[in-house]
């Protein structure tokens, strides 16, 4: 084993191979965090819609969840990147392929975000549904509208309950961000592959990449556990699913 390979001058772009690792970490985090923002927002809206009564609201949300959950992420990645620009109007398609900055990166973010939204939606729905109906009735009885019940009663409770499953969804996005390498995003796994190709030090390079993934996972888990303890709802301990 020889980890000095990371301090050798890199093949291209100046710097050393360690710089490639850091650049990989940067892209992995950027993809994960931006995708998470989309997943959380879209997923919350869909999750709420799935708990509402009108079919016109519920059905599209259910359809969305089923479609995005039942197609492999890799296939969705290819559809965003390779198919979408070809079936939209030509001007827009050309923009998506050439003129927009960093098309691989943004496609990966959108794909991961909308894919994970379907999973977040399910967590949000189960969080809301785990709250006893009595709370909704109490809210309505004191004169809140349905929207206000969601805003002041169901969502604040629901989110706190589902912090653990949401954490694991974030970690899933973080790991899934490696699928972005299939459309050319040089995130951590892709960089590891590339360094191993240039240096033939596959074992050392994969070890470092794995350690980085584990450390970031650990850091997120610890941080989220602290958050969970701070916002815990008395009487609801550990009732949030997984």
């Amino acid at each position: 084993m020889d980890f000095s390979v990371f301090f050798q001058p890199a093949f291209s772009g100046g710097g050393i191979y360690l710089d490639w690792v850091f650049s990989g970490i940067k892209w992995t985090l950027l993809v994960s965090i931006l995708a998470w923002i989309i997943a959380f927002t879209v997923g919350s809206v869909l999750g709420v819609l799935r708990t509402t009564h009108p079919v016109a609201l519920r059905a599209p949300a259910t359809a969305y969840v089923e479609v995005f959950r039942n197609i492999p992420l890799l296939v969705q990645m290819f559809i965003w990147y390779f198919v979408l620009p070809e079936i939209v109007p030509e001007g827009l398609g050309n923009w998506m392929k050439g003129e927009m900055p960093m098309p691989e990166f943004w496609n990966a973010v959108l794909c991961l975000g909308f894919y994970t939204a379907s999973r977040v939606a399910e967590q949000v729905r189960s969080g809301i549904q785990s709250i006893p109906d009595g709370q909704t009735y109490a809210g309505l009885a004191v004169g809140l509208t349905r929207a206000q019940v969601y805003r002041h009663v169901l969502l604040p409770m629901g989110y706190r309950i589902i912090i653990p499953p949401l954490t694991s969804e974030f970690l899933t996005i973080f790991k899934n961000s490696s699928v972005a390498l299939t459309i050319g995003v040089l995130e951590l796994t892709a960089q590891a592959r590339q360094i191993s190709e240039y240096t033939f030090r596959t074992f050392e390079v994969f070890t470092v990449a794995t350690v980085v993934y584990v450390l970031i996972t650990l850091a997120v888990t610890v941080a989220m556990r602290a958050l969970e303890n701070r916002v815990r709802v008395p009487g609801y301990m550990g009732s949030g699913g997984k």
Partner: peptide
Amino acid sequence: AGTTNERAMKA
């Protein structure tokens, strides 16, 4: 990825 052409072009 993984070709000599990649290296030549990058160099």
